[in-house]
Amino acid sequence: MKKLVFPLFLSIFLFGCNEEEKTIEVNNASGEEVEEVTTVIENKDEIYSGRAIFVEDQLLVAVQAKPWLDYKKTKIEKDLKEQLNERFPNYEITVSADYKLYWEAQKLLTEEATEKVKEKVEKLKKLSKEET
């Protein structure tokens, strides 16, 4: 039993080390915008996954920070928002590193009806501002 403890520990700890590819998903928008938002997220080292939703004049970007950098979340959000604001001055941008928004964004990626997406994005914006 005691001999087993060390390899077990090692395997658990090393599970965290396998670097995965950055996944960036964007919903149906014109090619140029998709490319631009992808490069912005790609260049941010603290992020391991991101989802962007374009709907009318709204842009929702939900990202997940790397586990060890989770405490820097507000800074990452702020930086990303500044960078996106420069590139997309015509959009009203919402950036969040919250898991709730990341989860809901996944559902919006495949949603076709613009009206529904817009409604959901508005709701998520409101949710992300909630404090208590």
């Binding site: 709730k100 989860w103 949710l127």
Partner: peptide, 17 residues
């Protein structure tokens, strides 16, 4: 925590309670 985030309208900020 994840149960409340996924199935209810809670964010990481509000899910603590």
């Amino acid at each position: 925590t994840y149960f409340y985030i996924i199935f209810f309208d809670f964010t990481e900020k509000t899910v603590g309670n």
